[in-house]
């Protein structure tokens, strides 16, 4: 059977089928020009525009700045530059402005939703006030260095796993559930704020700083997400303003940190987009009939 059969007119054409045994005149290792016909290369690759990628990276640097601002407030509070009264004022101002943004950017005003939010936040504030004395003495037996080290690593974890494309806290009725990583990120930030709060002298201090941190970590992504959805231009302006404020604050705090933050922002907003576009050229994706079919509907578990 191994010998080559002479190509002749009467010989039936080779077919790409598995049935019917060995095809007469063709060996089992016969390969015709239809081989790899179904292969598609780089079918799902999106051509990216550097400007678009840079604009999208603003979200990341914006959130980076928010976290840095929180850390600044922590440092000033620990150094007794900001008092309790000022902190509480800051809390109220943040809460007010947050609500204002939510109301202004909402498609339609819903009194019920607003009532729902206010009720939840009042529960939250009461609970926090009751728990403040516990937080106050939580880490008394641990040295400040360890707490700072732990806080910094938790914040890095938080930044690393944060969901930059959306917001972990969603308005009621949102479709997609938050992912595991974004939940871990949120929890890391909460633990970090509790740790910092536990180094403060009085109960009111603790209450004010935890409230402040939680407001930012829980609701800042939601607020910025709403702004971004409302108007991209506003989002850009807001982000750049925030970056300037943050840079100024850090400049006053520490020159080296300032240089580091500036470098980080440039890295995130300029270098990384460039890098992404650069390595796109190496993308090589193969698809074909052997791929597992994707279901075109959602599986409801």
């Amino acid at each position: 059977m191994e010998d080559k059969v002479e190509e002749s007119c009467s010989q039936p054409a080779w077919r790409k089928v598995a049935y019917g045994g060995m095809q007469p005149g063709y060996d089992d290792n016969y390969t015709d020009e239809s081989f790899l016909e179904g292969m598609v290369m780089n079918a799902n690759v999106v051509k990216r525009d550097i400007l678009k990628v840079m604009q999208d990276s603003v979200s990341i640097s914006q959130y980076l700045c928010i976290v840095v601002l929180v850390v600044c407030v922590w440092t000033y509070t620990l150094g007794s530059t900001i008092g309790e009264a000022n902190l509480l004022l800051l809390d109220v101002a943040l809460l007010g402005s947050g609500f204002l943004v939510l109301l202004l950017t909402a498609r339609r005003l819903s009194l019920y939703l607003l009532y729902h939010y206010i009720l939840n936040i009042s529960y939250f504030i009461c609970g926090l006030y009751i728990l403040a004395p516990i937080y106050n003495t939580l880490t008394r037996s641990i040295s400040s260095d360890s707490i700072w080290a732990l806080t910094v690593s938790l914040l890095i974890l938080h930044l690393f796993l944060h969901d930059y494309s959306g917001s972990t806290i969603k308005p009621p009725g949102a479709l997609n559930n938050p992912t595991l990583t974004s939940n871990i990120s949120l929890n890391a930030s909460i633990v970090a704020s509790v740790l910092i709060a536990s180094r403060l002298p009085s109960r009111l201090h603790v209450f004010a700083i935890v409230l402040f941190s939680l407001q930012v970590f829980l609701f800042a992504p939601l607020v910025t997400y709403c702004i971004k959805k409302y108007s991209f231009r506003l989002h850009l302006c807001f982000s750049f303003a925030l970056m300037l404020v943050t840079l100024a604050m850090v400049f006053m705090l520490n020159r080296m940190l300032f240089a580091f933050l500036l470098g980080l922002l440039v890295f995130v907003m300029v270098l990384c987009p460039y890098w992404l576009i650069k390595i796109q050229g190496y993308k090589f994706e193969i698809n074909g009939p052997w791929d597992e079919a994707k279901l075109c509907f959602d599986i409801k578990e």
Partner: peptide, 25 residues
């Protein structure tokens, strides 16, 4: 390989010359 599709897949995955790969279902 057990089918022609499987042969295409194996050749791509392993970089084997196609004439070394037989299709026997």
């Amino acid at each position: 390989c057990v089918s022609h599709t499987s042969k295409e897949n194996t050749v791509l995955r392993s970089g084997l010359p196609p004439e070394k790969v037989f299709v026997i279902p």
